[in-house]
Nucleic acid binder design. Structure first.
Lengths: 360, 360
DNA sequence: ACGACCTACTGTAACGTTACAGGACGCCGG
DNA sequence: CCGGCGTCCTGTAACGTTACAGTAGGTCGT
């Protein structure tokens, strides 16, 4: 009784039945008589048996009923990014419908990636990992179904994600159509943790940051395609994907080039820009238009409500769940295209003193 | 090569070494010569061996390096509640520092609680479960370390949580001190999913809702203790813990009793009340004071910034991690008290046309 | 030359479960 | 009285790993 954990065997012996009968008492009640079942369960309770051990079961059944999500950066960061939360929300929702649990795994905690190697999962979802991230190799080494959500496709892995460049171009086109000619873009430059902070050293762009780069270049490309010089666009990099970071970057823009429109590569940054504008008494959208990206819940509640590129992160999470479950079931599904459109709210308007339309 | 998954045995035979040597090649590189190790790993690669199977390892080692969080209601709900997200953030942060992964488990998905029974975890954290929730019994049956975060203590389980009643009383006291005499309280009445929706049938209060009840009664008690009649407080129940729910409830209050102060039992509800007030052209705080509870990130960014009861949910999450890890290590820690104080921002002021102070 | 000691590896024995293939027994129709 | 069938239970044989104890062979100091 000290630490002699009873096992299924123990219970079987005590009840005078075979181990299989005990197992069945828990897992297949229809395979034994009600009285035997009750006797077994009673004796199990008396012995303090806590039910079949999940580890033994997993070993034998060769499944865990769990899907692992590999997150960029440190695990906790996932919760500070509303876009990531929305994706996880959808993912959790889809998996939970199928009775699968969700295991959250950090990426860079240890160089050995022991967490990935020993994760008790049936499949992986990669949340914004780049193809060349060492953790990705580790995941592929597990030879389990994998779905990737993020910027760049990984060879041999189903991918979910929008074309960030095209999507950002829509934002640019909207502003161009309104008549804007001077643009500010707020991006996130540095990775969230140390790494490449020394000047001169090449900055390693991890995870979602790649997607943000794509948004920047998509935006710039669209502006140039409309016939404007590249320096019609000023890109500023925030320290982090936070409202404060966005506000800081926006202040920089407003104090120097003073564009008539700002594109934040995430809603979080754009919302920060709105605060900065409010503080500096720059009226939005009269004197400054602001566009975001993601269509996070908060985007519709800002003052004024934010015009943004909506990419239904929740649905993408659910889609990731569907696909990964299909792969587990041996079905090969095609990933349907993801709707991604500009939602025009009240944070954009023609620039003051100019007419809209007729770009060129 | 069809589906003959190689095992550690297979690799050992192919390499002409013992299984233990293969195991050591992965887990204890210092226990064998570099050349043997490389040979083993090379052959493993050639055979397509993906490394030691986590299920086998878990069975043998009797640990999973994973902590399960049991969530109220359906799993996805966790992500829509910023308070819950903040707690999970802290929890994930603490666990990740210790190399533990986080398994999210829904509660009511299936009546059998198969998910709890077969969860591959070393310990559980209960997020706002009530002592009499059947899932709690299931968790206790697992005989693993458990920490509970939430409203009511569970016998024999370490608990983290503030005294909701006392905390709400602070909010009440603040409003009383300002001179308010007519109060509205926005609570959440019905459980989030079906369950007891029929009139007459007693409503089963699940999870966080209990905490919210405690906040309501703490508030009411404080008002009465100050010498006012119980009907100085009007309680309205929102349909759900969402901004829309809070806004709807606030409209009800503003149209009928028109209190000079509103207490939302969560920030989410209080923020909804702010929107409702703005829409109805009721100036905050001049004509209406609003107080929330939780001190969610968004609370400091509303217009005006929300006065609220701050209970540092992130820290509570980290604390839960610490305690659960301590229990796993066999250490018994005492749970330190949790700081919980009123943060006065700009959403509260004396009621129009009256003097502050001298209550009673 | 001998024991002490180290390095590199091996053998044994679980860890706790469940899939699968039966077997014993009773019942029923012919 | 026999074959067929259904119910309830059992026996066997893994599932893949690792803790622990041990051995073989070499080096080193005296």
């Amino acid at each position: 009784m000290i630490d002699e954990r009873p096992t299924l065997q123990t219970v079987a012996r005590a009840a005078g039945v075979s181990p299989m009968t005990v197992s069945n008492a828990y897992n297949r009640p229809d395979q034994l008589s009600a009285e035997t079942r009750e006797k077994v369960l009673r004796i199990a309770r008396e012995l303090g048996y806590s039910g079949p051990d999940p580890a033994g079961r997993s070993l034998r059944r060769r499944r865990t009923d769990t899907v692992g999500v590999l997150l960029t950066e440190r695990l906790p960061y996932a919760f500070t990014d509303p876009g990531m939360v929305a994706f996880l929300h959808g993912l959790a929702s889809g998996l939970s419908d199928a009775g699968q649990a969700l295991l959250l795994l950090p990426t860079i905690d240890d160089a050995e990636h022991a967490q990935v190697r020993s994760a008790l999962v049936d499949a992986f979802v990669l949340a914004s990992l780049l193809p060349d991230d060492p953790a990705v190799a580790e995941v592929l080494g597990r030879r389990l179904p994998v779905v990737s959500w993020g910027a760049s496709p990984i060879p041999g892995v189903a991918r979910i994600g929008v074309d960030n460049g095209r999507a950002a171009a829509k934002a640019a086109q909207h502003l161009l159509d309104l008549g804007h000619r001077e643009f500010g873009v707020i991006s996130v430059g540095r990775p969230l943790l140390g790494n490449g902070a020394e000047p001169g050293e090449p900055v390693v762009v991890r995870g979602r940051h790649r997607a943000m780069q794509q948004r920047v270049s998509g935006f710039v490309r669209a502006v140039r395609a409309a016939g404007f010089d590249a320096d019609a666009v000023t890109v500023v990099e925030a320290d982090s994907n936070t409202e404060d970071g966005g506000a800081q970057a926006a202040r920089e823009l407003l104090e120097n080039r003073r564009p008539t429109a700002i594109f934040g590569v995430t809603d979080v940054l754009a919302i920060g820009a709105l605060s900065a504008a409010a503080e500096a008494d720059v009226a939005v959208p009269a004197k400054l238009s602001v566009v975001g990206f993601d269509d996070v819940v908060a985007a519709s509640r800002t003052v004024p409500p934010l015009t943004t590129v909506s990419q239904s992160l929740f649905d993408q999470g659910r889609l990731a769940a569907t696909i990964v479950l299909d792969e587990l079931a041996g079905r090969r599904t095609k990933t349907p295209p993801i709707r991604c459109e500009l939602v025009v709210r009240a944070s954009t308007a023609p620039p003051q003193g100019r007419q809209a339309g007729s770009a060129g």
